[in-house]
Computed example of a mutant assay.
Amino acid sequence: MQFISHQDQHLTLSDTAKPQLKTNEVLIKVAAIGVNRADCMQRQGKYPAPQGDSPILGLECAGTVIELGTEVDQSWLNRAVFTLCADGAYSEYVAVDAAQLMALPRDLTMAQGAAISEVYLTAFGALFQLGKLQAGQTALIHAGASGVGGAAIQMAKRIGATVVITAGSDEKCEHARALGADHVINYKTTDFVEYMQHHQLTANVIVDPVSGRYLNKNAEIAAMDCQIIMLAFLDGRFAEVDFARLLQKRISFHASTLRNRSQAFKRQLRDEFVAMFYDDIANQRFDFNIYETLPWQQAMQAHEILERNENAGKVILTVQ
């Protein structure tokens, strides 16, 4: 099969053998691939695959099941699916744990399917598993125009929460508003703490891929018993923390990643997400927030879009 190899930070099409299936796995003929910042970091040598995962890039895809492991239900054969992958999605074929598959609804394209798994499951875990977000509460979502941000906005609004986002341009703010955000803050021109204090807003749940200097700022506008979920540290690895404020408000701080979670965790996450939001996906109540779709021969250009922080939403590769 062909796959996209990465060497010396460059991406090129290469050839390798098809994956060998484990008993619990299916083989997917890949039609579309979601591009994520983790892919860029892995290409740069900063984020190696967890032990036992495929060395090939790619954390999510959509495609058609063409082969089954011996323990897999026969009903999956020849079905269109979208799914998380334990790496390996940048290829013509990928082996995936069958318990993590989600059936692609008839009216969705493969590109739309490839835009869902990583960002929606990440946002779902942050907002609902860790954040315990409820109707009537307020969620603050940093990087609100990102793929995860767009998914978080829509799910939070779906359950009746108020959504505040930050983003780095007026255009990205308007994009987030179109997805349902109630308050949009361009962090380059407006301090989000001042904005929220002026509008008498406090956050019950904060989804934060920025961290660094944002930790103390988040604490300033946190509600009592706020849940802060750190997904990345774009502002840097280290920060001074005002522990008195954290204690005063009984703030809980979670550092969360999805890629290195156990198979059992990912299966449960998938099941809870499907139970709560699959009907919304099937009925296209969500915008799947695709910024650009490129042929997989242009994978390097796709990475450059993310590295320039150009995109509002997902970048998708189609396998041709």
Rank of each mutant, 00 (worst) to 15 (best):
T122A: 03
E92Q: 06
S5Y: 07
Q268E: 15
A111S: 15
D279E: 09
V72K: 00
T109Y: 00
E25G: 03
V26Y: 06
T122R: 06
L21V: 13
V274P: 15
Y47C: 08
K188S: 03
L84P: 11
A152K: 06
L317N: 08
I159R: 03
V274D: 10
W296D: 03
Q154S: 04
Q284F: 11
R37K: 11
T122G: 02
I206E: 00
A143S: 11
D225V: 08
V148P: 01
V119I: 06
A178L: 12
R37G: 11
V184L: 09
E194L: 10
D8L: 13
G131R: 13
A282K: 04
R259I: 04
D73N: 14
P19I: 11
Q284L: 11
Q320S: 12
H199S: 09
E307P: 05
L101Y: 01
R79G: 08
L231E: 00
F265C: 09
C40W: 02
E25M: 05
M230S: 14
A239E: 15
A17G: 07
L269K: 11
D87A: 14
M110F: 15
A80V: 09
N218T: 01
L130I: 02
K132Y: 08
V72W: 05
A152I: 10
A223E: 06
T190E: 12
E71A: 15
Q284K: 13
F288N: 06
V119D: 01
R158E: 09
G88Y: 04
I56K: 04
F253P: 09
A244S: 14
L246T: 03
Q284H: 12
F253Y: 15
L133D: 00
N186V: 05
G58S: 06
R308S: 12
R270T: 15
A32K: 00
D15I: 07
A38N: 08
S117V: 06
N218D: 13
A239P: 05
L258W: 05
A139N: 02
V72E: 02
N186H: 01
A31E: 14
G212L: 09
R158L: 12
A38Y: 01
F253H: 15
E171P: 01
L179K: 02
I66K: 04
A111E: 15
M300D: 06
A239S: 15
N283G: 12
V205Y: 00
R37H: 13
A111T: 14
D182Q: 11
K46A: 13
K172H: 08
S14M: 13
E240L: 11
S146L: 04
V35C: 02
G88I: 01
V65I: 10
